[in-house]
């Protein structure tokens, strides 16, 4: 009886230990899984976290904003061509409305407007979509009025979408 009982008891011990191992391992798996998920949550948005992608979208959107908000009364077509190239979706109409008014003004006052991007922040960035906040400086030269110069700033919320490597602006909102 002692031999068999001893073997059984050993087996009982092993099973108890195994059961404990299972419970502990399951607990550890759940805990670390939750921790990992929490740590990775921020990673869905790679703005700034992926410096290469961030620089690229910043470069392209900066160029796009400069080109569509700069114009010369003598060559308004150039600005329109730029808009066709870099705008898509909702932004086409949003921009079209404001540019129609600007065009008339530009012709009347013989305006030359130069826009630069003073600062640009990428709020969120994924492979397909970016949300940005841009601070623009605009210098407007009234060539019909003694070259009087006017400056203004604007802050825009910009949405851009990646279409095969090219970031196109799909929404523009002044805030």
């Amino acid at each position: 009886m002692n031999g068999a009982g001893g073997a059984q008891r050993r087996r009982a011990t092993i099973m108890a230990v195994l059961a404990a191992v299972i419970v502990l391992a399951a607990g550890a798996a759940v805990w670390s899984g939750l921790q990992a998920r929490q740590l990775r949550a921020a990673g869905d948005n790679v703005a700034l976290a992926d410096p290469v992608a961030t620089r690229e979208v910043t470069r392209q959107v900066t160029g796009a904003l400069k080109s569509i908000f700069s114009y010369d009364y003598n060559n308004l077509a150039r600005t329109e061509r730029a808009a066709e190239r870099v705008l898509a979706g909702e932004a086409v109409e949003q921009y079209g409305r404001s540019f129609a008014a600007a065009k008339a003004q530009a012709r009347d006052g013989k305006l030359v407007r130069t826009t630069t991007v003073r600062s640009l922040g990428v709020r969120s960035l994924t492979a397909q979509r970016a949300h940005l906040l841009a601070l623009l400086d605009q210098q407007t030269l009234h060539t019909a009025g003694n070259d009087r110069q006017e400056s203004a700033t604007a802050v825009l919320v910009v949405t851009a979408e990646n279409t095969g490597g090219q970031w196109k602006i799909t929404s523009l909102t002044s805030v």
């Binding site: 670390s32 921790q35 990992a36």
Partner: peptide
């Protein structure tokens, strides 16, 4: 028990690598 240990190990590694990922650290800092 073996499967449980493997799963725990896998998630443990996932946690460790998430904690030591430069990009994720930057994203969290942001």
């Amino acid at each position: 028990a073996v499967v449980a240990l493997l799963v725990a190990g896998w998630f443990g590694f996932s946690w460790w690598s998430a904690a030591h990922d430069d990009r994720l650290e930057l994203a969290r800092e942001r």
